[in-house]
Design a protein around this nucleic acid. Structure first.
Lengths: 187, 187
DNA sequence: TAGCACATGTAACTCGTTACATGATTTG
DNA sequence: CAAATCATGTAACGAGTTACATGTGCTA
């Protein structure tokens, strides 16, 4: 019915009405952890969603320099979102540039390869720390982990759990690789 | 110096000379697990690599219906590849449609949501099984796991380990989510 | 007074996919 | 003899990024 970006925007608008500017920011974080878009893509997509009657907008003559459009999801938009969310994505195309580099890492001097992987591990550790802080603040707000799967909080928590698991395993893999690069059998 | 696809092709050609057709097939598997391209992208990219003197080709007048071009990496190509492989990718853009769907899974009836995640889990389990078979056959060929990081076999093994770890954790996350969707507090 | 946050839009370009186009050899 | 495999290329289109364009109000 609409593009993936369209569903990303509907997913945000299902939680609360937003302006194009706000949506653009949310597409950096937290949505940006698994889907990104720049504002030059957001504004045309909102127009397309509106043409399909999946969202509507009201002009807010706020204090800003220009009029702001506050978008709101329609009943049809909500139905389209739920239908899309309930259908498993067809085999995702994995694009992992790091793996592509590792596939050719044998052409690199092991010492330099180690440096690269160490830097990668550090970046992943920083991301993990960030996710852990997010989890702590989420638990503090709620007292415990969100458990009702019909609330937006539960969905957010589920994606966060995935991020935590992902970063943890990537770091473990980096450690294995670093070990293999260090205890190399070259004499 | 060239596009990511260019480095993917150089990575394959660094292991052995190939025709455009063969490269296209390898971009489905095993490279396709983390980078894909169709033949309509491969042939122009090979021409671009040749214009940059990173690869060269010889025409093989084989038994086929038309002449085959066998591409071979040049010394400059090998240097470009090693330089690229040793540099950590700048923060990868993660596009994970499943996570985008989970972010809006709260709008879906938990029973249907469960069905979706069960199907996803099954697909991931099948992929894991496939990776496990690949690992077994790799160990059989070598007697043990490849340990010399200056061999293509080691690089291949490292990416395989990543795939195994990734699938294992994704399945565990699916199980956690399925449990949360089942023991829902709605009375 | 310089720069940033707010706020929206268009244009040019790259990357990637699907469809169009051709045609011989092998296999069921 | 029909279909798959081998083998290479172009065209049209969609998705996504960077750069271009405009302009106010607040803060350091």
């Amino acid at each position: 019915m609409c593009s993936t970006l369209g569903y990303a925007l509907l997913g945000l608008l299902a939680r609360q009405p937003r302006t194009g500017y706000e949506l653009t920011q949310l597409l950096r974080a937290p949505i940006g952890y698994y889907w990104t878009a720049s504002h030059s893509q957001v504004y045309p997509e909102l127009a397309a969603l509106e043409a399909d009657k999946l969202v509507g907008h009201r002009v807010i003559v706020g204090p800003g320099p220009r009029d702001t459009k506050r978008y709101r999801i329609t009943a049809a938009g909500r139905r389209a979102l739920a239908t899309w969310a309930a259908r498993r994505p067809d085999t995702t195309v994995n694009r992992d540039e790091l793996m592509l580099k590792v596939y050719s890492l044998w052409t690199v001097d092991p010492t330099r390869a180690r440096e690269m992987i160490v830097a990668q591990r550090e970046a992943d550790a920083a991301t993990l720390l960030h996710y852990q802080r997010m989890e702590r603040s989420m638990r503090q707000e709620h007292g415990r982990a969100p458990a009702d799967p019909t609330t937006p909080e539960f969905s957010s928590y589920a994606t966060l759990r995935r991020g935590l698991s992902f970063q943890t395993h990537v770091i473990a893999w980096c450690d294995w690789l670093l070990d293999a690069l260090t205890t190399t059998p070259r004499v």
